[in-house]
Nucleic acid binder design. Structure first.
Length: 414
RNA sequence: GUGGUCAUAGCUCAAUGGUAGAGCCCCAGAUUGUGGUUCUGGUUGUUGCGGGUUCGAGUCCCGUUGACCACCCCA
């Protein structure tokens, strides 16, 4: 039996990596004053339809439950957040700075960096419209990636502004109902042959390509770059108006994070969605909002593909997982005394392991080695003395059993 | 949804159409109380599944399931 297509088992090594990633995410979000929330994995299908239209249903894990409700596994966190905020925002001072680490689902064929489920860090600021909030959010995404050991040599945030393009569309008198189509064409221009994009854009092709070739900018974009420069983060970001993002709900600044080597798909993306809360609450509540998401799959691939990031991860995982003390029961008659010591050491906060079944001494030492223990404590004929062995140096000392805790403390100091 | 590549031991992989193997891991031993390196021995398979061709199929053909990669789409 295997897991379903596109789903993962997390064996201990994979689970340790996942926990490492989550811990870094929580740590950095905390540095920025964000607080964690969560919501249901299952939502009414309408929540997603309302936001993205019927065609999204094709990629949704969607079904009718036993109460005949049309439901879907969450494909992203933003609609849930917008729903919660529309209902509950009065309880909280603005702006809200919230993050979440949801597992999200999509029904599509798995491929590199993309499965049918993954975890993502979502960070959102609700109720603030000044560009400083856009800069703050971008600084956060930069610091999230930096936390894994990556530098400005490894990744870059490409920052754009949908308003930059909608201004042009207004100027060129393109009817608003065709804006989304035009934005999609610009979004695809990097990945498609020029002729195809020209065809999509029609009379807009000429001005758009002029801008793309000489590089666009705006007062707002320059202000955000200036803000990042003050933080010393300018090397991690650049203005790039080619970024538009596929989702229809973005209204202003949008950005995506890429590895500089271009080996992976976008590792994070986000932007401003000032209308979404109003849209989901039928205009009962209107709050400006912005957020980003970064997934665990591509980030994990990138960490494993980078020597520095990988070493940092492995070191952290090892130091948190290895047991510190392995108790060797050299004589079965000593098992009772060993158990008492094990309980005491565990109460003191040590990670302690031992062989549940009786085993030869050599095997117990091999197990001590394999669990990564720094010390072995041998219970045998010397009782009430016990042997405390430093497994790194191989040196063993005989210590009265009741002096073991203080002896370990003295060895631990340096 | 479309296309390509692949599927052999727990893991990584061999095997001209002719008796299914290696390394790693695991287990046991090398004068009965001390790990890492060594040496010796051992366990492990309906060759993903179902059909077909053939005297004979892991190998060739068809189907199916799954994996990987690309496209579509992008949260």
């Amino acid at each position: 039996m295997q897991p379903l297509t596109g789903f993962r088992d997390f064996l201990p090594d994979a689970c340790a990596e996942r926990n490492y990633i989550f811990a870094k995410w929580r740590e950095v979000a905390g540095h920025y004053g964000f607080v964690e929330f969560d919501g249901p994995v299952l939502e009414e299908l309408d929540l997603y339809k309302k936001k993205s239209g019927e065609e999204i249903v094709r990629q949704l894990y969607e079904f009718v439950d036993k109460g005949e409700r049309a439901v879907a596994l969450r494909p992203e966190m933003t609609p849930t957040l917008a729903r919660i905020v529309a209902e509950q925002h009065r309880q909280f001072r603005k702006p809200l700075k919230w993050f979440s680490i949801p597992q999200v689902f999509r029904y599509e064929r798995p491929q590199r960096g993309r499965l049918r489920e993954h975890f993502q860090l979502n960070c959102d600021i609700i109720g603030e419209e000044v560009p400083e909030s856009d800069a703050e959010l971008i600084a956060l995404v930069i610091d999230v990636v930096r936390a894994f050991g990556f530098t400005s040599q490894d990744f870059v945030v490409r920052i754009s502004d949908r308003e930059f393009w909608t201004e042009l569309l207004k100027l060129e008198k393109v009817p608003p109902d065709r804006w989304e189509e035009m934005l999609q064409a610009i979004d695809k221009s990097e990945r498609e042959p020029r002729e195809k994009t020209e065809e999509r854009l029609g009379k807009l092709a000429k001005p758009v390509f002029e801008i793309l070739e000489k590089g666009g900018e705006s007062v707002k974009l320059n202000e955000i770059m200036g803000n990042l420069r003050m933080r010393g983060l300018a090397d991690f970001a650049k203005i790039d108006v080619r970024i538009v993002r596929g989702l229809a709900y973005y209204t202003g600044i949008v950005f995506e994070v890429f590895d500089r080597a271009g080996k992976f798909r976008a590792i994070a993306g986000g932007g401003r969605y000032d209308q979404l809360v109003a849209q989901l609450s039928d205009n009962a509540v209107s709050l400006p909002a912005l957020g980003f998401a970064i997934g665990d799959v591509v980030l994990g691939e990138m960490i494993r593909g980078n020597a520095t990031a990988r070493a940092q991860m492995e070191k952290t995982i090892t130091s948190e997982r290895d047991v510190e003390i392995y108790v060797v029961v050299a004589k079965e008659e000593q098992r009772g005394n060993a158990m008492a010591a094990i309980q005491q050491l565990r109460d003191s906060g040590y990670r302690v392991d031992y062989s549940l079944a009786s085993a030869k001494i050599a095997r117990q030492f091999r197990l001590a080695e394999q669990t990564g223990a720094r010390f072995a404590i041998v219970f045998g004929d010397e009782w009430p003395q016990v042997g405390v062995k430093d497994l790194t140096s191989g040196k063993q000392e005989s210590v009265p059993h009741d002096k073991v805790p203080s002896h370990l403390e003295s060895l631990r100091e340096p």
